[in-house]
Design a protein around this nucleic acid. Sequence first.
RNA 1: GCACCCGUAGCUCAGUUGGAUAGAGCGUUGGCCUCCGAAGCCAAAGGUCACAGGUUCAAGUCCCGUCGGGUGCACCA
Length: 625
Amino acid sequence: MEVKTDVKVQLKEAVEKAITTLLSKAETLEGADPIAAPVVVIQDTPNDKPGDYGTPVAFLLAKALKKNPVTLAAELAKTLELPFGISRAEAVGPYLNFFVDVAGYIESIVRDPLNIPSKNLKVIVEHTSVNPNKELHVGHLRNVVLGDAMARIYREAGYTVEVQNYIDDTGRQAADSIFAARHYGAVWDGIQKYDHWLGELYVRLHQDLKDPEIKAALEPQIREVIHQLERGELRSEIEKVVKAQLETCYALGVEYDLLVWESDIVGSGFLDKAMKILEKSEYCSHPLEGKYKGCFVMDTSHFLPGLEDPILVLLRSDGTATYTSKDIAQQFWKFGLFEGLDYLEFTVQPSEKYLFATHSNGKPHAFAHANRVVNVIDSRQEHPQKVVKTSMAIAGYPNEYENSIHLSYNTVSLEGQAISGRKGITVPMDQVMQEAKSRAADELAGRGILDDLKNPDKVTFQVGLGGLRFSMLKSERTREIDFQWDAALSLVGDNAVYIQYAAARANSIIRKAKEAGLNSDRADYTLLGNLELELVKEIARFPMILENTVRDNSPHHVAHYGLELANCFNGYYNHKDQNQKTDTKVIDSSLPDGLQCARLAVVERMFKALERTLGVLGIEVPAEM
RNA sequence: GCACCCGUAGCUCAGUUGGAUAGAGCGUUGGCCUCCGAAGCCAAAGGUCACAGGUUCAAGUCCCGUCGGGUGCACCA
C-alpha cells in the first residue's frame, strides 16, 4: 500500500483543488475577475466536535464569493476528492470537517518511518561563545542548551548544520585572567579543573582592581597582555581554558563542528573587505568634523528607531575595529562572501567526531557558506545583532538579510537574583550538573530502585541532565527564567522525567510483548478503535511541530509536544471501560492475536516518536528507571 | 526620555502565526494498583486572557492608547 507522510498536507491539497474548480466555475458563470484562492488551514477539530480534522476555509470563500459559508462548505464536502486515510468529509455548519478511516489512517502513520527529506540548505548555529577566561556557569546554560537543541532540530528537519563556537581570544577578559595568573605567581596544580582555577584568579584580580591605585599600576601590564594575545603569542594558554570549558559542554552532551578564533578573523583581512563593502552604502560615512571626526560610522536611524544616538562607530578614529564591525565581517564570512580561513583538527569529541578550529597554519576546509545563520545570543545584544543583520541588506544581500537570525533569549536569574560573577551570585555549570545527578540519585534511592538498576550512574545522568535541559527549553525564548533548584530539578509533573517515564513504560510493554511472542508484523489494524486513533493522531503531529520550531527558532514547541504525547500515551495506557476495566492492554491472551499485535505496533511507533522528540532536545531515554 | 520584550487560573507556563465551549503542570479536594511500570491515570474547583477602544462573519492572537514588570540606548570589551 502507499504510505504518505502527512494527512493534513494531503487534505490541504485536496481542499485547494476543490476550491480551484469551484472558483473557476464561478468565474466562467459571471465572467468576473479571477478570485484569489484563500489560504487553506487544516486544523484538529475540538474534542467534542464531529470529525478528526477540519477547516474554516468556507468563511473566506464566502467573503470572496459573497455567498453563504454553510452552503459553500456543503458544496466543498460533496466535490472534494478524498485523500487516502480519510473516509469522508462533512460540512458542520460553516466548517468543513474530515473523518479519518481509522484502520487505514493508523496503519499509514504507524508504518511511516517519518523520514524528512533533505532540504539541501546549510544552516550555521553559533552558540556557547563564552569568554575563555573562566568556567561556564548557570547563566550560560540557556545559551548552550538552546543552541544545541536548535542545531539538532534543524538537522532533524533536513538541514545541513554546522555548529560554531566563537572564541574571543583577544578580549579584555582573557587578558585579565592570564595576567592574573602571572601577577599572583599562581601555578596550576593539575587537579582542579583548569577553567575553575583561572576563574578564581580572575575574580581575585577584580577585587584588587577596585583600588584605583592598583588599577592604575596594573593597567599598562594588562594592555601588554592584550597585545600579546592579538599577536597570537598566548594561544596555547587560551587553548587550555577552552579545552576545560569544552569538558563541561561534553558532559552536557553538547558538541561542535568548529571553533572560530577571533584572532584568526582579525588576521584574515575580512574586516577590511567588509568595510570596503559598507563604504558604498549611503548609511555609512567618514565624518570630517564633530564627535565622530576620523571614524567610519553607520547611521542606524533608518532601521533602529529609538536610539539616543543613532550613529554607530565601525572603525574608531585610531583605525581599530569595534566589536560590531568584527561581527559584521564574521557574518559575511558565514554566508560565504569571503574566503581564506584555514582550519586544523583541534580535538576529538566524545562521539569521536573531530572538532576543528580556525588556524593560521591550517588547511582549507568547506566550512561556512551557509544559507542561514542562527546566532544564539541573549536579548541584551539585540541592537548590535540588528546592525549585523541589517548590514547584509545594506551590502546588497537581501536573501542573507532574511536568513540572518538572532536567536534572542531573555536572561536567567538565580533564585530571584540577577546572576553576577563579581557579586558571587552564580553557580558553576559543573556544580549544577553534579547537583542534578545527585538529586536524581536521591529520588531513585527514595523509591528503592537505585540498587536494582544495572547502570545507576547512567540513569541518574540521563534523568538529572534531562530535567536540567528541559527546564531551559520548555519556556518560550522571550520569557525570563528564574532558575530555582527545586523547580529545575523537580522530578514530578511538567518535566522531562514525565516523558522519560512514559518512554520507559512503553519500552517495558514492548519487551514483555515480545517475550509473549507478539509481533507487530501480524497487526490487524481493522481491530483498532478511537482510543488508538487519538494516540496516533498525536504521533502524526511531529512534522508540523518541527516546522513551527524552525519557523520560530524556539524549541519550546518540541518540549511541549513531548509532554502532550507522553500525556496522551499515559491516558491511553490507563484507559478503563465502563466497568472500570483496562481496555487498552497490549498483552492479553483473551484478545485476538491481530489486536494485540496492532496495539504493539502502535506502542512501538509511539516509543520511537518519544525517543525522537527527546532526542532533538538532547535528552536521552533511559533503558531503565 | 526613546525603543524592544513580557502581562492568560493562587504559582510556573502552553495556546498550531485570526477560527468551533481558552488548555497543561504545581498547589487544593475526592477517587483509581488481585489489572502490560502509581515518577502514572480520572474527576472537581479555580478565568473580565493587565485595562480601555478599534478592525473582522470571527480577536488571547492584528492595530491604537493607558498601566505594570524586564532589557537596551559608549570610539567599553
